[in-house]
C-alpha cells in the first residue's frame, strides 16, 4: 500500500478515529454526512491539523512528523483558495517556486499545467474573473504542479452549480486516471464518490461504518445513512433460510438469498407495490400499513410508509391518482421476494 494511515484527532466534543489505506494510482473517497470528520481527516493528512495519536505512512516513510510544508502532498480546498492577488499562472507556479525552482522554470511548468487543464488562454486571469469550473481546474493544476505523491481533494465539486458539475466531474475523473500517486477525496455526494473512487470509506461521527468498492457499498448498505444515500430501504433482522424476522417490527420478509443468523435486508423503493384492498395471487411479502407522507421525487411520487415497517415506496403519478392515496390512509404494501436482498450483518 502506498498510503497507510491511522488518524486519531481528539476534540472536546468529537473524536475522529479512522484507518485508511490507498494504493498508488487509486482513488479513495471519504463519504459521510456533514460534521462526520471527513475534512478533519483530510487536514490531518495534509498536516494542517495535528494528530492526537496514530501515524501516516507514505511509500514506507513516516509522514506525520513532518510539518505541512514539507509533506509531498497536494491539496484542493473546497472553495479552492486560489490566491486572489496572483494570476492563474502564478497561482500554479507558486508551489514549484517554493521548491527552489527558478522563476522562469516554475512559470514554464505552470503554463504546461494550464494547457493540460485546458486553460492556456486564462494564464493572466485573476481568480475572481474565473468561473467556478475554471477555478476548480486551476486549483487542481496548482495542487498537481508540486508533483505530490498524495493528492487530497476536499469536496472538489461542491462549489459548482448543477449545470457545470457533470462536465467538471468527468474531467476530474480523467485527470485522476492520469495521476500516478494516491488520492484521497472527501465528498458528501454519493454520485461523486461512485464516479471518481475505486474504494469507498463511509465515515459517520468520526468512525468508519462501512468500506469497500463503490458498487459493493451501493448494493449492500450497512447503515441508514448509506441506505438513504443509495436509495434503499434497509432493515436488520435474523435470517432462517429465506425468511428474515425483522428487528423492532413484528414482521418477516422473504428474501432472495438463503442465509442463517443476523443479516441486513434491503429493497429499493421502486420494488414496492401499493394496493387499496388486499391483493390475491403470487407469493410475495405483504403487509398492511398507513401512509405517513407523500412527496414528489423526480418524475415519480415517493410514498413514506408508517408502522409496522417504515419504508419508502416510489409509484407513478398516475398510480397515485388511480389509488386516490392521502396521508393517514391504510394501504397494503407488497414486495417480491426476488427484489428483497439479504446479506450477512
Amino acid at each position: 500500500m502506498n498510503l497507510h494511515a491511522h488518524l486519531v484527532v481528539e476534540r472536546a466534543a468529537f473524536t475522529l478515529d479512522v484507518e485508511l489505506a490507498v494504493a498508488a494510482g487509486q482513488v479513495l473517497a471519504l463519504l459521510g454526512p456533514n460534521g462526520a470528520g471527513k475534512t478533519t481527516a483530510l487536514r490531518a493528512l495534509a498536516g494542517l491539523t495535528p494528530l492526537t495519536r496514530g501515524h501516516i505512512t507514505l511509500d514506507g516513510q513516516p509522514l506525520h512528523p513532518l510539518p505541512a510544508e514539507r509533506r509531498p502532498v497536494g491539496m484542493v480546498f473546497q472553495d479552492y483558495l486560489l490566491f486572489p492577488h496572483l494570476s492563474a499562472l502564478d497561482n500554479i507556479a507558486f508551489g514549484p517556486r517554493c521548491r527552489r525552482t527558478t522563476r522562469a522554470e516554475a512559470r514554464r511548468q505552470a503554463a504546461r499545467w494550464l494547457q493540460r487543464v485546458g486553460l492556456a488562454d486564462q494564464a493572466a486571469t485573476k481568480p475572481r474573473a474565473l468561473s467556478g469550473g475554471q477555478a476548480q481546474r486551476v486549483a487542481l493544476a496548482r495542487a498537481l504542479a508540486v508533483t505530490p505523491r498524495l493528492l487530497l481533494l476536499d469536496e472538489p465539486l461542491a462549489a459548482l452549480d448543477a449545470h457545470t458539475r457533470p462536465h467538471i466531474r468527468a474531467q476530474l475523473r480523467r485527470h485522476l486516471a492520469d495521476y500516478d500517486g494516491a488520492t484521497v477525496l472527501v465528498t458528501h455526494d454519493p454520485l461523486d464518490a461512485m464516479v471518481l473512487a475505486d474504494h469507498l470509506v463511509v465515515v459517520e461521527a468520526g468512525h468508519v461504518v462501512q468500506h469497500g468498492a463503490p458498487s459493493e457499498v451501493a448494493r449492500h448498505p450497512r447503515t441508514d445513512y448509506v441506505a438513504r444515500l443509495v436509495g434503499l430501504n434497509l432493515y436488520r433482522g435474523t435470517a432462517h433460510r429465506h425468511t428474515v424476522s425483522l428487528e423492532g417490527a413484528d414482521l418477516s420478509l422473504d428474501a432472495a438469498e438463503s442465509l442463517d443468523g443476523r443479516v441486513f435486508v434491503a429493497f429499493p423503493p421502486s420494488a414496492v407495490a401499493l394496493f387499496r384492498a388486499r391483493p390475491d395471487g403470487s407469493p410475495r411479502n405483504l403487509w398492511q400499513t398507513a401512509i405517513a407522507g407523500i412527496e414528489r421525487h423526480g418524475d415519480r411520487v415517493r410514498i413514506h410508509l408508517d408502522h409496522p415497517l417504515p419504508a419508502a415506496a416510489d409509484i407513478t403519478a398516475a398510480a397515485l391518482a388511480e389509488l386516490d392515496l392521502t396521508e393517514g390512509q391504510r394501504v397494503w404494501a407488497a414486495v417480491k421476494a426476488t427484489e428483497t436482498h439479504a446479506y450477512p450483518a
Binding site: L48, G74, F83, F94, C98, R142
Partner: peptide, 13 residues
Amino acid sequence: LRYEEAAATLGAS
C-alpha cells in the same frame, strides 16, 4: 487564515 494553509500545502515556509 486558510490562504496561509493553502500556501503551506504548496510547500511555502
